[in-house]
Write a protein that binds this DNA or RNA. Structure first.
Length: 530
RNA sequence: GGCCCCAUCGUCUAGGCAGGUCCAGGACACCGGGUUUUCAACCCGGCAACAGGGGUUCGAAUCCCCUUGGGGCUACCA
């Protein structure tokens, strides 16, 4: 948290929540504590200051007073000519006095590291082997910002040393930072050996480029554009994902700009500014808008996957296999199995694409694989996270529901299939297409009427009795079971997707079942004639 | 533009360092069939790749070079 502007307390909390959800605990760090604290970089300023002073004294670093405008100009010029900006080191290093004067004049004061220019810097990467960088390409980078905080590239070197870090394992996007960090390490801690560096491949999105948080607001813009159309600047860059999303939109309820702003706790102006691409609100605000619009944004953050009904076991397994494999044909693995098999030497060099379909397949397997107790625990957590009406149900009922959903791909599917049990009889939402297909076509309503009477005549609604009745009716009428079961299903659930029908009726109970059938018959009888 | 990384089925990958056992194996997706009260799940079968060009070698997916392509970085962000 060395960036005072960008740092938010919720972001750090989210990282820790995510790790804990995944089942990854840290031995040492924020909240857990340990012998090398404090663990927040913002609380270690005096430590960094000491080392910066040391470099300054040894003439291994120097003060700079350039404004960002001046730096921009230099950069432009460098680009115009041939290559990159490498900061031109002054002949004479400014001293403490100069720094004081500059501060008095209101100029920004930063500190740059004078990177040794005599020889190339060799990074020995665990995954990629030997990589050579010319010192001239790196240049004197800033180690202390004008607000007095260290830059990431400086702070992490000091921390790695002070915290006895043995392995630095991170994404490939940090590979270019490594020579600078190594040079810093040598200047500061010459006598101690470097940690081992391993730069992993980057996981890219199927929409191209790094898997980035920006995809969510981008997708949301497209949806807002579609539903409200209050933008004049949404153009070309419509992601394929956003398009599939908009196709999944529920039949139009009325959506207004005012209500959208209200739901997100923004002003209409702020919504417009977001829509024009001028600003991007925080993730919870984005989520609130998406919820109001009834769409699922592409999952990017760990918490997004948890809210979409993926299991932590799935995520750990799937993520582990992106850029690593155990060397045999195993793919679906439990966490302890992964831990046992893991080996730094088997990390992959090339980038990988994040394939949500395969993730789904993994989730299906893990839902099948985890113990019923674990699954129940995950399911309850999921229900409360998405504020489902099922969240208050007791364990026994939830366990039954889970059992009946064998083969489900996500927790969301289990919820979707069994939600009808927890909705008031008069709050059933009928899916228009399903109603047309099952009730209004051929003799769906007529059959539903017969089913109603036979159910009413039964004294005991066991799954078996219901099955016998429905099968008997199908046989009498010389039709498949679907012809008699589907109208019943839509009457009870409003859709054709639900728990197995015999159990659905049993669990809903006779009174509710009859009531829903009657409501359905009444509601669609007139439509059928017109 | 500059610097760096990478390159096997549509996708994730095994094999590459120790060249022959690879007319390239597995998984997801896809296609065909089966099962089925919905959605799934499940079962059987199928399609599908060594980016291109030069070398080295008796022999190259495997070693070397070039080209092409993809990615990353290029901040007083991390």
């Amino acid at each position: 948290d060395t960036d005072q502007r960008r740092n938010t307390p919720t972001a750090m909390q989210q990282v820790m929540d995510d790790l804990r959800w995944l089942g990854i605990e840290w031995d040492e760090g924020p909240e857990t504590g340990g012998p090398h604290g404090p663990y927040l970089q913002s609380q270690r300023k005096d430590i960094y200051d000491r080392y910066i002073k040391q470099l300054l004294n040894e003439k291994k670093a120097y003060y700079c007073f350039d404004t960002s405008q001046e730096l921009d100009t230099m950069r432009e010029q460098a680009e115009g000519q041939k290559g990159n900006l490498t900061y031109l080191r002054p002949e004479r290093f400014a001293d403490e006095n100069d720094a004081r004067k500059a501060r008095e004049q209101g100029r920004p004061v930063t500190v740059r590291f004078a990177i040794p220019q005599n020889e190339p810097i060799v990074v020995q990467d665990v995954i990629r082997g030997r990589i050579v960088f010319a010192a001239a390409d790196i240049g004197d980078f800033i180690i202390q910002k004008s607000d007095g905080f260290p830059t990431y590239n400086f702070a992490c070197v000091v921390d790695d040393h002070l915290m006895n870090v043995t392995h630095v394992i991170r994404g490939q996007e940090h590979l270019n930072n490594t020579p600078g960090q190594q040079a810093l390490w040598r200047a500061l801690f010459a006598d101690t050996p470097l940690p081992a560096y391993a730069h992993m491949s980057v996981t890219v999105s199927d929409t191209g480029g790094k898997l980035s948080k920006r995809e969510r607001p981008k997708a949301l813009r497209v949806v807002i554009e579609e539903r409200i159309g209050l933008s004049d600047s949404v153009n070309a860059t419509v992601t394929p994902e956003a398009l599939t999303l908009s196709a999944k939109l529920h039949p139009p309820q009325v959506v207004t700009e005012q209500e959208l702003a209200k739901q997100a706790n923004l002003t209409v102006e702020e919504v417009r500014s977001f829509q024009k691409g001028e600003s991007v609100p925080d993730m919870p605000v984005i989520d609130a808008m998406a919820r109001y619009l009834g769409v699922a944004l592409p999952e990017i953050n760990i918490v997004d996957f948890s809210r979409s009904g993926y299991l932590p076991e799935t995520m750990v397994n799937f993520l582990a296999l992106l850029g690593w494999n155990p060397g045999d044909n195993r793919e679906i693995m439990a966490v302890d199995e992964l831990v046992k098999a893991f080996d730094l030497s088997r990390l992959t060099k090339s980038n990988s694409l994040f394939d949500r379909q395969k993730l789904l397949a993994f989730n299906t397997e893990h839902i099948r694989m985890v113990s019923p107790e674990t699954l129940l625990r995950h399911f309850k957590r999921y229900l409360s996270a998405v504020e489902s009406p099922m969240a208050s149900a007791d364990d026994e009922l939830l366990s039954t529901v889970i059992r009946l959903c064998e083969g489900a791909r996500t927790l969301a599917q289990i919820e979707q299939k069994s939600k009808f049990l927890f909705i008031d009889n008069d709050r059933i939402e009928y899916d228009e297409k399903d109603v047309k297909k099952v009730l209004l076509k051929s003799d769906g309503l007529a059959i539903l009427g017969i089913v109603r009477d036979r159910l009413a005549a039964m004294n005991e609604l066991t799954a078996q009795a219901i099955e016998d009745m429905l099968r008997g009716l199908a046989q009498e009428r010389q039709v498949g079971l679907g012809k008699v079961a589907q109208p019943l299903r839509v009457a009870l659930c409003g859709t054709t997707i639900s728990l197995p029908i015999f159990d659905s009726v049993r669990m809903l109970g006779k009174a509710n079942t009859l009531r829903r059938i009657d409501d359905t018959l009444k509601r669609f009888a007139t439509q059928n004639q017109t």
